[in-house]
Write a protein that binds this DNA or RNA. Structure first.
Lengths: 256, 256
DNA sequence: CGTAGCTTTGAGCGGCGTCAAGAGCTGTGG
DNA sequence: CCACAGCTCTTGACGCCGCTCAAAGCTACG
């Protein structure tokens, strides 16, 4: 129990892995990062399509995604899957469950690709929270999550299908880039995008074809973004709310 | 500078005002509540329609709504107002600005009715955050905000106009009830609802008329909810995520 | 080589936006 | 006391975006 930093390939002074980059954006590195890494009880591999978190009250740990892509979803009464959020390496999959217990059985987290997740017991997380800078970092993480929802809400309620899809893709690319994953390929199916945007799979397909015809996406069946500038323009995406280094510099909260 | 609890009509042992009830839901009362109240630098009245917070970097305080209804909005390039959130007594209007500085001039907070707001300087807020239970309470407040966005996002992206409007009304009623305002009347215009749901004012009107014909809303021009059960059913609204007393009881985070 | 999933394509329809005009209500000034 | 302006609310006509249903190609994997 308790991994070392070296085991994760993390050099505290020079973060290279998504997890370290993520926490650096939240204002955590060095000793504090070490503490978090040491709180990781164990790491688990999850195959694409499998559940990561069950909506079980007895679960007493949070999961921190270290590789792959997951989504938190809610099933509607007709069995449909509504994706509420995507998670990328460095994101907590279920931090909100820790603070606001979810009673809803229809809620869960699913691996969209093969994943690797870190398990941190509530007990150990509580110990981490005793340090003000760690508590602040988690508050920031939640603030960031709220900001993401806020932006998506704006686009989802007012935007066209083209805007919704473009915005969603931009957001995922930006978030992945923030943790060092600067590939232009997103490992999402069109069905995933449909469940996340609230559009029908058929219309997502047509929308993607439009983006392809605009030379914003590659013509291949994979989801490859060619022209990110144009994609951002179409999706009215301004990534300022995700730019943690810049936000951190302006941060008003200080822990001295 | 610094109001006393008595001045606000708050009896710590038996909270009666929205502000005290709100913080009680976040796990704050007694001495800790006193601390917050004492951090209030001054109170300001704002007339309906006026701005509460300007998107100015030089503002170094948060505003806590004590009476009335406000909304945070974002102006689109065509001048349209997108309402991202409503605020009711006890809510912070701009807590997110404290943690994630907003550079966007198009963002602001507006009074929808005549309001009274409490001003708390960043400096004093920082002092409050030194106490772990207060830091935790603000984290909870942000978690709650995120949960609200999450629910609205689900409905906004997949729901019909009827569902969107019904859900929005239910949410506002539930949030107001949680702070002791159990009136069935909402002081919102149809235009406010349109800007919050992303629907056109014309269609909001038709939707409201549908709700009236279903005997869910009163026939009057005001927004009076008659049948809340039915409204919740229509809007697929489950207020569990807003029920702070119940959530507090199950809370996993302890500050000992 | 067959099955199960994802992607693509087509046809038809309905919800909601847009435009336009009118009604009720309130405050303001002559 | 009336006239007028500026709201919000109401109502109707029409068009388009995106949903639904249905079927067929495409991969991947056993």
């Amino acid at each position: 129990m308790g991994s070392s930093v070296a085991q994760l390939g993390v050099a505290s002074s020079k973060p290279i892995c998504p997890l370290a980059l993520k926490f650096k954006g939240l204002g955590i590195d060095g000793d504090a990062l070490d503490l978090i890494v040491r709180a990781i009880k164990r790491r688990v591999r999850v195959a694409a399509g499998d559940g990561v978190v069950c909506a079980d009250d007895t679960v007493k740990h949070v999961t921190l995604l270290s590789a792959g892509v997951t989504c938190s979803y809610k099933r509607s009464e007709d069995g449909g899957r509504t994706i509420r959020a995507f998670h990328h390496p460095g994101d907590f999959c279920d931090l909100s469950r820790y603070v606001l217990p979810e009673r809803d059985d229809a809620v869960g987290v699913q691996a969209l690709t093969d994943c690797s997740v870190c398990i941190i017991d509530y007990r150990d997380l509580e110990r981490l929270l005793a340090r003000p800078e760690l508590a602040l970092a988690l508050w920031r993480a939640t603030m960031l999550e709220a900001a993401i929802y806020r932006e998506r809400l704006t686009i989802a309620s007012r935007g066209s299908a083209l805007e919704r899809v473009a915005h969603l893709l931009c957001e995922q690319l930006a978030r992945r880039e923030a943790v060092g994953m600067d590939s232009n390929r997103l490992p999402l199916s069109q069905i995933d995008i449909a469940d996340a945007t609230g559009l029908s799979p058929v219309h997502v397909n047509r929308t993607i074809q439009t983006l392809r015809s605009l030379d914003v996406l590659s013509k291949e069946s994979h989801l490859d973004v060619i022209d990110r500038k144009q994609l951002a323009r179409i999706g009215k995406f301004d990534g300022g709310y995700l730019d943690m280094p810049a936000l951190l510099a302006k941060w008003t909260v200080r822990v001295d």
